[in-house]
Write a protein that binds this DNA or RNA. Structure first.
Lengths: 359, 359
DNA sequence: CTGAAAGCGCTTACAG
DNA sequence: CTGAAAGCGCTTACAG
C-alpha cells in the first residue's frame, strides 16, 4: 500500500487549478454556479490528485454533519436491519447513519446516546421509549429531532414512528381465543434493572390483559431468560411450559424466532402443531413464512418504520414540510393467520404427514 | 422539547470554571494530569451546563476521528451482524463504527467507499476482495489500514481476516461425496456486472471443482436470482432443481437460509430429507441448528472475524503490536454434519416421523 | 462569477 | 499543573 506523504487538501487542489479554495468548494457543492472552464480546471485537479473532501472539516465549518444517529437493540435481528435499511434509503446518500446497538441494556443506551451526540448528528433515531433519566435529559438538550421507533409512546419525547406493542399482544390473544383455545400461554423474556425488552414486555402485557378480559387465566404468561430472544429461547421456554402445563393448547411467543424454536421443540417431542398445540409469533420473520407449517404472526412493517422515519426527518431537516407532521405515526400491525394456528379441519396436509416423493 | 439557545461549548465550561479551555480539554481527556480542585470545578461546570464535547471539532484538531468504517453486503444477515458486533466489541467504546451496506453492488460499494473516506475513518473494513478499479485506487490512496473480510484474497489490498470460500465449497462437496452421493447439486445466485456475491460464487466454484475431481458431473451447479440469497431463494431454486433433475441425491446451498428454504420445499413436496435428498448449507445460521432435522453446514465463526479484525486494528492504530501481524488471518471453516445429511441408518427419528404427544 | 477574511470548537506544541 | 497562540480543513458571509 503506497501511502501518500499527506492527503491532498482543498488548498492543494486550488493551487493546482489556479483558483481560490472557495471556488473549489463551490465546484464540489454546486458546480452550476461556477464558470464552465473554471469548473473544468478544478475537476481536473481533483481527479489528478485523487482529492476526497474532508467532511470532518466541512461539518465543523458548516455546522451540518449529515449524520443521523440510530440506536438499535441488536445488529443481528433482520427486522431491525430492515428498519435501518429503510431509513438509509429514505435519507438517501446525503446522510450517513451512525449506528449503535445496546443489547437491550439501559446503561449501554445511555453510553451510546452520549457517544453519538458527541458526533453532532442532525437527528437521532432510537428504538424504544423507555430511557434512563440521564438519557432523557441528553436527548432533550440535544436540540435536534429525536424519533422514537418501534413503539407508540404517549407522549413521545419528540416524535415517534411505530405501533402499539400492547395492541399487538392483544391482537394475538384475540386470534387464539377466537380459535376456541382456552388454555393459552405466552413466552417472552425477563425484565431486570438494566436489561429489558420493553417492547416484548408490552406485547406480553397486552396479551395477558386480553386473556383476563376474556375470563381466561394469564398464569401461563412466562418470562424466561434475557433479551434478545433467540430460536433457542423458544425451544427452552416451550420445554419449560410443557413441564408446567402439559395441557396447554396455544402459545404466543414475543418473536417469530422464539415461536420457531418453540415449534421445533414440539416437533422433537412429537407434539403436533397445530393439531395439539397452536403457535403464534410476532414480527413476520422470513423463517416463519417459509417453514412448514408456516407460523401465524402479528406482522409489522419494519422497513416502513425506517422509511417513514427517514421521510419525516428529511422534511424536518430541510424545513420542507409545510404541514406540521403529527407527533406520532402509527404503522399498525396485522394478524397473519397461517398454518401453526390452523384449525384441524382447515389445516392442509403439512410435510410431517406426507411421505415419499411428490412433485 | 425545550431547545437550548445554543449548545454549550468548551469555552462556556472554561469560563464557568474559571480556567482555560486547555484545562477543560485535559480534564476530559485525562483527569489525572489536572489538580484535584481544578478538576472538580471543571466537572461541576460540565455537569451544570450538560456539556457534551464536540468530537467533530476534536477530530479535526487532533487528526483522530475514532471512526472505523465498515462496509457490508446487507444489514439483514445475522452473520454479518455478528461480525459487526464482534468488531464493535473488540474496538471498544473509544471507536465508533461507520456502517454502510452495498446489497452486493459494486457501484454502491464505490459510492460508499468514497462517502466513508470523506469522514476520515482511521481504518476501513470491507467485506470481500473484488472491487472496481476506482474503489481499489481510493482504498490504496487512503493511507489507512484496510481490512478485507470474509475472504482470503491473494494478496490482500492491505490486510485480510477471513477464510477461503473455495475451500468451504470443496469441504461441502467432500462431505456429500463421502456419504456416497453421486448425483449432487448446488444452488447459488447469478453474477452480473454490477451485483454479485463473489463469496457465494467462490463456494460454488470450489464445490464444482471437487465434484469434477471426484469424477462427478458439475452440471447441477445452479445459479439463480440475485444475491442476497433468501429463504425463498432456496425454495425456488430447489423447485427448479427438482424440475431439472428429479433424481438428485444431495444439494449444497451457498447459505443456510437457502438450504432451509430448499428443505421446506422438499417438505411441501413430500420429499424426505435426508432420506431421499440430503441437504447442506453454509454459515451455521441459528435456524439451521434449531430446525428438525438440523441442517448440516459449513461453519464459519462470523463473530470471530469481527473480533480478530478489531484486535488487529487496535494493534495497528495504537502501534502496540511489536510483532508485525500476518497479512492474512484465516479463521478457517469446519463441516458440521447434522440431520439433513445423516445416512438413513444414522438418522434418528425426526419429528416428521413421530406422532402424538411425548414427554 | 470569484476571492480574502474570519471562524467553526476543539487539540497540539510550546512555554512557564 | 496551567495557559496563550496557532492551526486542523473546510464554509459562511461579505465584497467586488
Amino acid at each position: 500500500m503506497a501511502a501518500q506523504p499527506r492527503k491532498p487538501t482543498m488548498r492543494d487542489v486550488s493551487r493546482l487549478a489556479g483558483v481560490s479554495t472557495m471556488t473549489v468548494s463551490r465546484v464540489l457543492a454546486d458546480p452550476s454556479i461556477v464558470a464552465e472552464d473554471t469548473r473544468a480546471r478544478v475537476m481536473q485537479a481533483v481527479e489528478q490528485l485523487g482529492y476526497v473532501p474532508d467532511l470532518v472539516a466541512g461539518s465543523l465549518s458548516s455546522r451540518r454533519t449529515r449524520f443521523v444517529g440510530l440506536i438499535l437493540p441488536t445488529l443481528t435481528n433482520s427486522n431491525f436491519g430492515d428498519t435501518a435499511q429503510g431509513l438509509a434509503e429514505a435519507l438517501g446518500p446525503a446522510y450517513q447513519l451512525l449506528i449503535g446497538y445496546t443489547l437491550y441494556r439501559a446503561s449501554e443506551e445511555e453510553r451510546l446516546v452520549r457517544a453519538l451526540l458527541a458526533r453532532r448528528p442532525e437527528a437521532l433515531v432510537i428504538a424504544g421509549s423507555i430511557h434512563t433519566a440521564a438519557t432523557r435529559r441528553m436527548l432533550s438538550n440535544a436540540a435536534i429531532p429525536i424519533v422514537e421507533i418501534w413503539e407508540r409512546p404517549e407522549p413521545p419525547l419528540d416524535r415517534a414512528v411505530g405501533f402499539s406493542n400492547v395492541e399487538a399482544g392483544r391482537a394475538a390473544a384475540r386470534h387464539l381465543i377466537g380459535l376456541g383455545h382456552r388454555r393459552i400461554a405466552a413466552i417472552g423474556s425477563e425484565l431486570d434493572d438494566d436489561v429489558a425488552d420493553h417492547r416484548g414486555e408490552g406485547r406480553l402485557q397486552g396479551f395477558a390483559a386480553a386473556l383476563r378480559e376474556a375470563g381466561l387465566s394469564d398464569d401461563l404468561v412466562l418470562r424466561r431468560g434475557h433479551a434478545p430472544v433467540s430460536f433457542e429461547h423458544g425451544a427452552e421456554a416451550m420445554a419449560a411450559l410443557l413441564e408446567r402445563a402439559p395441557d396447554v393448547e396455544a402459545v404466543f411467543a414475543v418473536s417469530d424466532a422464539s415461536a420457531f424454536g418453540a415449534m421445533m421443540e414440539c416437533r422433537r417431542r412429537g407434539i403436533d402443531v397445530p393439531g395439539t398445540v397452536a403457535i403464534m409469533g410476532f414480527g413476520d420473520f422470513e423463517v416463519g413464512r417459509q417453514c412448514e407449517p408456516a407460523i401465524s404472526t402479528v406482522r409489522v412493517d419494519a422497513k416502513a418504520i425506517g422509511e417513514k422515519t427517514g421521510r419525516l426527518l428529511l422534511e424536518t431537516l430541510t424545513g420542507a414540510g409545510t404541514a406540521r407532521a403529527p407527533l406520532t405515526e402509527d404503522v399498525g400491525v396485522s394478524v397473519v393467520a397461517r398454518g401453526t394456528t390452523a384449525r384441524r379441519d382447515e389445516a392442509g396436509p403439512h410435510g410431517a404427514e406426507r411421505k415419499g416423493r411428490g412433485s
